[in-house]
């Protein structure tokens, strides 16, 4: 099968959906001529014109508000937020308006809007351009949250998001835009709420989101060399979350590590670990543990930044402890 970059996969998904449905439009900063700083949207304005690929002023609340209004009145806007960190600028439009309009209008209004943004550290972009803030929107009922882990997921999930009648936030890892993966030529979509078992195993379950799937897969390779069989699962969407697949794997292996690039406290790792403890408690042979980014602003220093977020080595060490039956937090 052909291999394309995640960047190209996103571009293809948008182009396909824009050809299918003329209500699909793109809004955001530097989306047209510049094709975003990551060149993800290059070529779209040439095909679809500036009526449908719209460069906005540098005002995140402004263009997000336009996007919500357009969605309520029949369009399917894909709003491009240049950095995930800017999500704090659009919290009212996203969380108070988009998330609640369907509910508060008694189902009379829909907001079929997609917010495309990014996450991920280790790009030397410092504390205000390196955050992974997906847990914050996942907390708000009414928003769906997708986290593609490769070009294949990026395309399939984005197409599902555009066709969804509810607001969806997609977080792409900005370090993965140039990563290639096998993507079919023909059209396909990936349903929300279906986790993907990336690797089957029997001794421990590693649940990873977005680029942390790669971290888990590397850790699984290292564990295999030690004779430990690790299962790697990618939830693909955290809202809705495929609890069943995660819990079944937890029951099978009896040990779970949840890895996510958001800050560890009050984050996605905590939520998933809680659900596993609640639903698989009597099958657990070790405490379900979390590995997230440290609870500090992402440092600019490369030496510090690299150890702030989860690494394969940390996952490997933790998995060995759990599988060997080492006493963890028993005091």
């Amino acid at each position: 099968m052909r291999k394309i970059t995640l960047s190209k996969a996103v571009n293809e998904a948008l182009a396909e959906e824009m050809r299918h449905d003329e209500t699909v439009i793109i809004l955001g900063e530097d989306v047209a001529e510049a094709g975003t700083p990551f060149k993800v949207l290059s070529g779209l304005v040439e095909e679809f014109g500036t009526e449908r690929v719209i460069d906005t002023p540098i005002s995140e609340p402004g263009f997000m508000g336009i996007g919500v209004g357009a969605a309520m009145t029949g369009m399917r806007p894909v709003v491009d937020l240049m950095f995930g960190d800017f999500i704090f600028l659009i919290m009212d439009q996203l969380c108070n308006q988009a998330a609640k309009t369907h509910y508060m209008s008694g189902g009379k209004l829909n907001v079929p809007l997609v917010l495309r943004t990014n996450m991920g550290a280790t790009r030397r972009s410092a504390a205000q351009h390196s955050q992974s803030l997906h847990a914050i929107v996942a907390h708000i009922p009414g928003l769906k949250v997708a986290m593609p882990s490769s070009a294949y997921e990026a395309k399939g999930l984005l197409k599902t998001a555009i066709r969804d009648d509810n607001p969806v936030v997609i977080f792409e890892d900005k370090l993965m835009y140039q990563d290639s993966a096998e993507v079919p030529e023909e059209e396909y979509s990936i349903p929300f709420g279906e986790a993907c078992i990336k690797r089957e195993g029997t001794d421990i379950t590693l649940i990873g989101t977005s680029s942390m799937v790669q971290v888990c897969e590397k850790a699984a390779e290292m564990l295999q060399a030690e004779g430990i069989s690790a299962e790697v699962i990618d939830p693909r969407t955290i809202v809705p979350l495929d609890e069943k697949t995660l819990v079944e794997s937890a029951k099978k292996t009896g040990r779970v590590i949840v890895v996510d690039e958001g800050h560890q406290s009050f984050g996605v790792t905590s939520e998933i670990a809680s659900r596993i403890n609640e639903q698989a408690f009597y099958h657990l042979d070790a405490p379900t543990t979390r590995i997230g980014a440290m609870d500090v602003p992402i440092p600019f220093s490369p030496a510090l930044e690299d150890i702030t977020v989860p690494t394969p080595e940390r996952v490997f060490e933790q998995a060995k402890k759990l599988v060997s039956g080492e006493l963890i937090n028993a005091a």
Binding site: E226, P302, A303, I307, F316, V323, S324, G325, A330
Partner: peptide, 25 residues
């Protein structure tokens, strides 16, 4: 100094500990 973090995290992996030598209290 650039490489310091990578070395630090890789170090514990170096001595391969057989599974039987689990440390229990």
């Amino acid at each position: 100094s650039e490489k310091a973090p990578a070395t630090t995290v890789a170090e514990p992996a170096a001595p391969k500990q057989p599974e039987v030598s689990r440390r229990r209290e």
